[in-house]
Design a protein around this nucleic acid. Structure first.
Lengths: 108, 108
DNA sequence: AAAACATATATGATATTTCACATATGTGGA
DNA sequence: TCCACATATGTGAAATATCATATATGTTTT
């Protein structure tokens, strides 16, 4: 994982918040993140695809939905950056996290 | 320190390497970094200025030269991101660090 | 079971915005 | 005045948004 490439992925509000949310929730599908971030579907999907191409996220289809989670092979230092950022900036995505949990519980 | 703003600053090779080098060396002046990164002066200066405006770096003039170091008020989580990245990616900037140390010892 | 329809997600094309660089010029201290 | 550094401007490249459309799965109807 090239450090600059990694940070380029974090250098966008949609992608960073998606990562922080997924790191907290464990996993989430596109529709959950659309709700949580108040974004349209193509925008959400595109940014997730970019994170997947960089191998920061891994996707898995289960039935109709596609779930995203942190990639199991993500280097430890990179994982720590994401988790540490989440721990120290809870208020930055608190509202989105609340909506995300509601969305997950309601099953999309 | 807004997380996205912070990561935007790291999402560029010149800026990221400058930060990693400065975090290792403690401080460095523009001419040292020009040597280490093989860049011209305006380019080096512009990126350092951006890091200074974001309050990731602090500058101090001592005689003819201007020295940059990590900003004392940088939030702990952000400092940890930089130090952790340096620890886990030594080979990414090893060559530049070697040149930097030579440049520092030779007094620009 | 097949056809028709609905839903979730991905992607192509293009317009738009953002960003980085080169060059030139400005400024402050020795 | 010279040197080290900063900044302003024009320009080309790259990232992003948006709209339309494609694909894949699930559901209902007949």
């Amino acid at each position: 994982m090239n450090p600059v490439k990694f940070y380029k992925c974090l250098a966008d509000e949609t992608r960073l918040k998606s990562l922080l949310l997924i790191s907290e929730a464990g996993e989430a599908c596109v529709c959950n993140l659309m709700d949580a971030l108040q974004l349209d579907q193509p925008k959400t999907s595109r940014h997730l695809a970019e994170l997947r191409k960089c191998e920061i996220l891994q996707s898995e289809r289960r039935g109709k939905w596609i779930y995203y989670k942190l990639h199991p092979d993500l280097p430890e230092w990179a994982r720590e950056v994401i988790l540490g950022t989440a721990r120290s900036n809870a208020d930055y995505f608190a509202k989105a996290l609340q909506v995300l949990n509601t969305s997950i519980n309601n099953g999309c």
